[in-house]
Amino acid sequence: MKRIYIILAIIQLIAFSSCQNQTTESTNNDPIEEEHEDENTVSLSQEQIKAVDIQFDTIEQKVLKDLLKVSGELRVPNQNRAKATTLYPGVIKQIYIQAGNFVNKGERIASVTNADYIKMQEDFLTMTTQESLAETEYNRQKDLYEGNAGALKNLQQAEANFKALRARKASLMRQLQIMGINTSQINNGNLVTSLNIVAPVSGIVGNISVQIGSYVDTSTPIAEIIDNRKIHVDLHVYEKDLASFKEGQNVDFLLTNNPDKKFTATVYSTGSSFEENSKTIIVHAQVTGDKTGLIDGMNITAHMGFNDSKVDAVPNEAIVSHEGQQYIFVVDEDHLEKPNHSADEVSFTKIPVIAGKSDIGYTQITFIEEAPKNARIVTKGAFFVLAKLTNSGGDHAH
Score class of each variant (00 low, 15 high):
Leu255Thr: 10
Ser269Pro: 07
Lys240Trp: 02
Asn277Thr: 10
Ser194Val: 04
Asn207Ala: 12
Asp227Trp: 04
Gln286Lys: 15
Ser202His: 01
Gly271Gln: 10
Tyr215Glu: 08
Ile226Arg: 02
Asp217Tyr: 09
Gly297Trp: 08
Thr266His: 02
Ile186Val: 13
Val201Asp: 00
Lys246Asp: 05
Pro200Tyr: 02
Asp312Arg: 05
Lys310Tyr: 03
Val205Arg: 04
His236Phe: 12
Gly293Pro: 06
Asn277Leu: 03
Lys240His: 05
Ala223Ile: 10
Leu191Met: 15
Pro221Trp: 10
Ser209Gly: 04
Val267Trp: 00
Asp296Gly: 10
Val201Ser: 00
Val287Asn: 07
Lys262Tyr: 06
Thr220Leu: 01
Gln286Val: 08
Asn277Phe: 07
Asp227Glu: 06
Asn207Pro: 02
Val287Gly: 08
Phe263Val: 12
Ser194Gln: 13
Ser214Phe: 04
Gln286Asn: 13
Gln286Met: 13
Thr256Gln: 11
Asn228Leu: 08
Lys310Met: 11
Phe263Asn: 03
Asn257His: 09
Lys240Gln: 12
Pro259Gln: 12
Asn187Glu: 09
Pro221Ser: 13
Glu247Arg: 12
Asp217Glu: 03
Asp296Pro: 00
Tyr268Asp: 14
Lys261Thr: 14
Arg229Tyr: 05
Val237Lys: 10
Val287Leu: 08
Glu224Gln: 14
Ser219Asn: 15
Pro221Lys: 11
Val216Thr: 00
Phe274Ala: 13
Pro315Tyr: 00
Val233Ser: 13
Gln211Ala: 15
Gly248Asn: 09
Ile226Met: 04
Leu255Asn: 12
Ser278Glu: 01
Glu275Ala: 11
Gln211Met: 13
Thr301Tyr: 05
Asn250His: 09
Gly293Ala: 10
Gly189Ile: 00
Ile208Glu: 05
Asn277Pro: 00
Val198Leu: 02
Gln185Asp: 03
Glu224Val: 09
Val201Ala: 03
Leu254Arg: 13
Lys310Trp: 02
Asn196Ser: 14
Ser269Tyr: 11
Ala243Arg: 07
Ala223Tyr: 02
Ser202Phe: 01
Leu242Tyr: 11
Val314Leu: 06
Thr193His: 12
Val237Ser: 06
Ser244Lys: 14
Ile222Cys: 08
Lys262Ala: 11
Ala285Met: 07
Ile226Cys: 00
Asp296Ile: 03
Gln211Arg: 12
Ile300Ser: 01
Asn188His: 05
Gly206Glu: 04
Leu195Asp: 01
Glu276Pro: 08
Val233Leu: 15
Gln249Asn: 02
Ala302His: 07
Asp217Ile: 12
Glu224Pro: 04
Ala285Ser: 10
Gly297Tyr: 07
Ala199Thr: 01
Leu191Ile: 14
Tyr268Gln: 08
Gly271Val: 07
Thr193Tyr: 08
Ser214Cys: 08
Val233Glu: 04
Lys261Cys: 05
Asn316Ile: 09
Ile212Thr: 15
Ile186Arg: 03
Asp290Val: 09
Lys230Thr: 08
Gly305Thr: 03
Asn190Glu: 13
Gly293Ser: 05
Ile208Pro: 11
Asn187Val: 02
Glu276Met: 10
Ile281Arg: 06
Ala313Val: 07
Val198Pro: 00
Tyr268Cys: 01
Thr264Lys: 15
His236Thr: 05
Ile300Leu: 14
Val251Glu: 01
Phe274Glu: 06
Ile281Pro: 03
Ile208Gly: 10
Gly189Pro: 00
Gly297Lys: 12
Ser209Val: 02
Asn190Lys: 14
Ile225Gly: 08
Asp234Ile: 00
